[in-house]
Design a protein around this nucleic acid. Structure first.
Lengths: 202, 202
DNA sequence: AGCAAAATTTGCGTGCCCCGCAAATATGCG
DNA sequence: CGCATATTTGCGGGGCACGCAAATTTTGCT
């Protein structure tokens, strides 16, 4: 990878990170695109060369994670489907060393609260759902590959993908709703296991 | 209901319908808020008294339908959960006599193609997903009511709601992808049954 | 190293969207 | 009928997304 692409990746990351940080700190509509660009050391116009909206920049990391689930899945052919899924999901949503270190946050509680406010923002919920749908398509493709089903004719891979994203979203929502007593990994395994078991009443 | 509220409901419907029709006919970004307002016989400013965005107006009917699923569910306590769910969903997504009559479309195929283009629009996918999430919350509440689970502490009602919306979305997507050979009702029952059966490989 | 080609960044201008505010208008009720 | 309450409308502001072309940076080649 040449210098060119490395710089692009850096700018991309810097922009999305700045977007998240500023939004968590100040709230969505108190952050202007201009602010994000400035924080990333780039001109306002350049922001829109990387992201087509403020919301997209903020949600980028989430989308990336979800897409990686599909990628991870493809690397586990042969395993029982739900084992492969659970493993792939857990890997992506494990507390990421780098990500944990990234927010140079003194006050973790304040940060968490900011995140709650952020994900409550309607404009972002829309973009997040959209990211989920995008990822879902990739996961469906991966599942089709693993199970030998037909992406266009069969409902099955789409249903599985839908369950996966449903589990992820539900687990994250639960985690944000209640206060971090239960680790996310437990919520995720639990949610996925329930789906695999047919959601019979508990 | 007084004249006042009836007029409001009329305007609301006229706006959302005009938004859909114009978008299907011309494409999302060739329709200005001004056009929609004009088609509904109302000032542009009034449009935003009813909907906070163009996308919201377009997606309104979809949201409404999904919310009604939750409502219908609450009216079926005592039944086995998945039976109640399947019944509620089918009722809402049955070919609606009024809705079928509404588009005064000469060319049905042209209309269908327009719909496909419309739902492909990124901005709308976001808003649709968001509507799905909103409905999901209501459905989760209904499920919690029916099964006596705790909306805040338990994952279960949220997982079920997620499955329901997943089934709905998947069925609709499949219907738009392939050409109307299979009736939506079959796709829906199938999708829901698969979820209830644990999505075991087919 | 030097230079030309290719890609990226930037500034500028445009069109549109969403909303706050206050005036005008319509409705409901005694 | 006339007042109190809602709704609609016009106006104006702030911002966002993007097309375009000029300026700058990176790359590949000699």
């Amino acid at each position: 990878m040449g210098l060119r692409e490395r710089k692009k990746a850096q700018t991309h990351a810097a922009l999305s990170w700045a977007a998240v940080r500023l939004t968590v700190e100040r709230g969505f509509d108190k952050v202007k695109v201009e602010d994000i660009a400035e924080a990333a050391g780039v001109s306002p116009r350049t922001f829109n060369n990387y992201f087509s909206s403020k919301a997209e920049a903020i949600v980028f990391r989430h989308l990336d994670r979800c897409l990686r689930v599909a990628e991870a899945l493809r690397e586990r052919p042969g395993e029982p489907l739900w084992d492969a899924i659970t493993e792939s999901v857990l890997r992506q949503f494990a507390p990421d060393a780098e990500a944990v270190a990234h927010p140079p946050v003194a006050d973790a509680e304040r940060w968490a609260e900011g995140v709650r406010v952020m994900v409550a923002e309607p404009a972002l919920r829309g973009e997040m759902s959209r990211a989920g749908a995008t990822a879902e398509a990739e996961i469906a493709a991966a599942v089709a590959e693993l199970t030998g089903s037909d992406l266009r004719r069969d409902l099955y891979p789409h249903l599985v993908a839908s369950a996966v994203m449903g589990a992820v979203n539900t687990a994250i929502a639960h985690h944000l709703r209640t206060d971090a007593a239960v680790p996310v990994s437990r919520l995720l395994t639990d949610a996925l296991a329930r789906f695999a078991a047919g959601l019979s009443t508990p």
